[in-house]
Nucleic acid binder design. Structure first.
Lengths: 248, 248
DNA sequence: TGAATAGTGTCTATCAGACATTATTCG
DNA sequence: CGAATAATGTCTGATAGACACTATTCA
């Protein structure tokens, strides 16, 4: 960090980190890797990597997601979460990270990490309490909060369901992420009335009881009317001036 | 741009740009500066500047806001919007910008620009259609959309009102930003019932008609219940104007 | 048949929008 | 007083939640 001393301003490395969420076994899970080098050697961390020259942030995120999960779907649910730029967040120097949130349907257990790093799914319930490298714990918390509120106003939940899926599958996604029980009857009424949330395929899935109608994801991205949680509403990351400038 | 060629990844400059919104004269306005140097010399742009070493992104945004507006309130309404990092967005090279959204009460017309750049308030209605430097037009559009939805779920609207303010003042903020007329009676019911949105000071403001009760901002940041725009999930359906007209 | 799961119907308290009415001031 | 603005009250249709009930399959 001693080079380029002619500039007064920050010349920083730019990284994208990914919070890749899925629902497996009725629980929200996040993909974590184990760091193979310093700093934070051996610690769990979010997958991510440097943004290349001549690459947009979104392109870098899509590339990293494909490398980590093999997912390269056109129906990809991937969106920028926010930037994290505390100069102390990386001991090596000034590294800005742009965090992305990806929602994936259940994927096979052994994730092919091209980086030869150990990758595994971890229950979010555990991961938010565990120590993670860098400021990844804060990023993960923000991402989960974003995902929770996304379920209210967008059709994002369907991204967690491998197609075709049943209304019960979809409800269990909501229950896993909100950690709330939902009334099956009222849930069905709301998702089937919402415009273009889900489309019936015409097929049914046989299990043990009455066969369940199968659906695929509809064209809508925004959910109207929204599917609100009974309790109060969470909003994506507010920057309070108190955290950064306790000046007075 | 020929130095530091040993890195495969992006070593980029980091900038914060500010979308500073206010409501003046019943219209949503944004603070624009006129660029004093290349590139985009003479073009309107969002205020902003380089992030310094040993400074967080939030700190840089707070500093820039103070420099541009003189505002350094502890009740500052300032939050990160998102990062923009297209390598082609700045002709000088790879410059990542972290955009921030600031909501301010009405400020005096001549904004003291420490940078000796011409700063002025522009109606958002005009600014979104005008050519702006860099990708600032896209940033502005995103910011306005964020502000609109913030009004639904947070108490952010009160940040636009110099204290003390009346319920009518607050309603006019909503009307200006949503560009919708709101029923004064129903609006009053909702904002006064929402927990800790506004607090009566006990004073009244005399104008011409009945004196209006004065309020200050309450402690809540999240608005519950939310104050939803009607158009959000209304199906404009087949209610004929004929029936209502005939009823009178 | 009974257990299990899927799906429908209905009742009610609540609430949003529409709008009528009352209250308080100024000129 | 009448105009202007603030504030309250009321009516009604829509809806969320609770939950009873019906439907269809398997063992």
């Amino acid at each position: 960090m001693t080079t380029a001393s002619t500039t007064r301003h920050a010349e920083a490395s730019v990284v994208v980190d990914l919070v890749i969420l899925t629902v497996r076994g009725g629980a929200l899970q996040v993909l974590l890797i184990e760091r193979g080098k310093e700093p934070f050697l051996g610690m769990p961390a979010l997958p991510g990597g440097y943004v290349r020259e001549n690459e947009t942030l979104d392109q870098a995120a899509v590339r990293e997601l494909a490398e980590e999960t093999g997912v390269a779907s056109p129906r990809l649910q991937l969106e920028q979460l926010r930037a994290y730029g505390d100069p102390a967040r990386d001991p090596r120097g000034h590294v800005i990270t742009i965090a992305y949130l990806a929602l994936c349907p259940g994927l096979p257990e052994p994730v092919a990490g091209t980086d030869a790093r150990a990758a595994r799914w971890a229950a979010v319930r555990d991961a938010v309490a565990a120590p993670l490298a860098f400021d990844h714990a804060a990023i993960l918390r923000d991402a989960v909060e974003r995902a929770r509120s996304q379920l209210e106003y967008t059709t994002a939940a369907a991204a967690f369901c491998p197609e075709p899926f049943t209304v019960t599958d979809l409800r269990q996604v909501y229950e896993a992420i909100w950690d709330l029980p939902l009334d099956p009857s009222n849930f069905r009424r709301k998702v089937t009335r919402a415009a273009s949330f889900i489309e019936a395929t015409g097929d049914r899935r046989l299990h043990h009881g009455r066969p369940a109608a199968l659906y695929r994801r509809g064209a809508a991205h925004l959910l109207s009317p929204p599917l609100l949680r009974a309790s109060d509403h969470e909003i994506p990351a507010q920057v309070s001036a108190a955290t950064s400038a306790a000046a007075s």
